[in-house]
Design a binder for these strands. Structure first.
Lengths: 222, 222
DNA sequence: AATTGTGAACCTCTTCACAGCT
DNA sequence: AGCTGTGAAGAGGTTCACAATT
């Protein structure tokens, strides 16, 4: 049993939005720590992330009391606490399926490695890519994905293959004991209970902008 | 004044989640139309997108009544209606700032062009890239972004530059009359009233998975 | 004086349930 | 009988406002 520095209040569930915001706070705190800022208030943290101060405090209060009344939060300490909460204090083994532009962008993204996401295997079906090495990662064919990800004890798989292939790739990853999947294919994927999946879809965001331009004054928020 | 086939109910505002789901329905309908499906129920549309049938009907009801009771929706008709609502029935001029892996992925993404997002200019600060042509798009230096995007009448700009440069790039795009921005830089950006901005942040999604793995049983939903 | 932590109020989004068409 | 469209109920997320603390 690992002793944690933060005290999870009750057995309350955490909303997706809170988790997303914690990521943002973490990034802000990293930047602040690097530039020598020692202390920060919920107000400042909020301004840097486009939310309210109350929101910042509520988000943090899900996990404990990290600040000091009248003074604010210690930047380094809070960064450490959020890092622990988010699981960014350890390294995760990441598999990449589909080495196209998106896959390559992830491999190149230094921030990933720094924050503990280590891409240890990559798969592609293109013979021209198989056998090549990108940023130290050898690309292999997908013949034995199940076996390979199980052997490598992969924690997270990034799926960046064409939509028609995505569900079967995910099924094979799940068979190989992968418990978390980041899907870039523009299609809904089903996974069994206990497996986490998130979708990243660039088309949805730009189409959201299209909607805003086509219907000015009809969008919530901005 | 353009006559629209869909009737926006009152002057009600549309939530972001509704807009995102409309994008997904649109994609499903496109696929269904291409494979010859003629009619669809809210139940089926829901199942394909991981939501409830009531949700689908509520989303659509913001814009009008597109179905027929007892029968469901005509696939082609509904696709047309959603396309019109989302502004996907026209072409948008897109500028790309920062031609890295992400930028290239967008240029390569055929679906974009098909759905009316035409990348007409690209900027980069790397002399090795300036002057080159990627998929028919010439890459120029960012010397005169304001002037160039105004001359080209750019509707949407995609910002894929390093975080420290993002805010100033956005300021220049706004000066050049760009009204919608898709930001890939992992930093909060402020824009004046009337300009739409959306953020695409791969780190947030994968960090969300990290949180789920670090705190199993603590996440809402799945 | 400043700022956190938090219950309560408020608001928004989702689901329910059923009347109304086909 | 089947399925949509929608008001009402329910659930969840955000903001308020203030007691507690430094």
């Amino acid at each position: 049993m690992v002793k944690r520095k933060f005290h999870r209040k009750n057995i309350q569930r955490i909303s997706d939005s809170t988790v997303q915001r914690l990521s943002k706070y973490f990034r802000t705190l990293t930047y602040m720590k690097d530039t020598g800022v020692k202390t920060v208030s919920s107000e400042t943290l909020a301004r840097h992330n486009g939310v309210t101060a109350a929101q910042v405090r509520k988000d943090l209060s899900c996990f404990g009391a990290f600040g000091r009344r009248g003074l604010g939060y210690n930047v380094s300490e809070l960064k450490g606490n959020i890092g622990e909460i988010m699981g960014l204090d350890r390294t995760w083994k990441v598999a990449l399926v589909g080495v196209g532009n998106i896959g390559r962008a992830l491999i190149d993204y230094d921030q990933f490695r720094i924050q503990g996401f280590q891409i240890t295997i990559a798969f592609d079906s293109d013979p021209a890519k198989i056998g090549k090495t990108i940023h130290g990662v050898a690309v292999r064919d997908g013949e034995n994905i199940e076996r390979d990800v199980r052997a490598e004890k992969v924690d997270i798989a990034v799926v960046a293959v064409p939509a028609p292939a995505a569900q079967s790739v995910v099924d094979r990853l799940v068979a190989g004991e992968v418990k978390a999947i980041l899907n870039f294919a523009p299609i809904n994927i089903t996974v069994p209970e206990g497996v986490f999946i998130r979708h990243e879809n660039m088309a949805i965001e730009i189409e959201g902008l299209s909607f805003s331009l086509a219907n000015p004054g009809l969008v919530r928020g901005s």
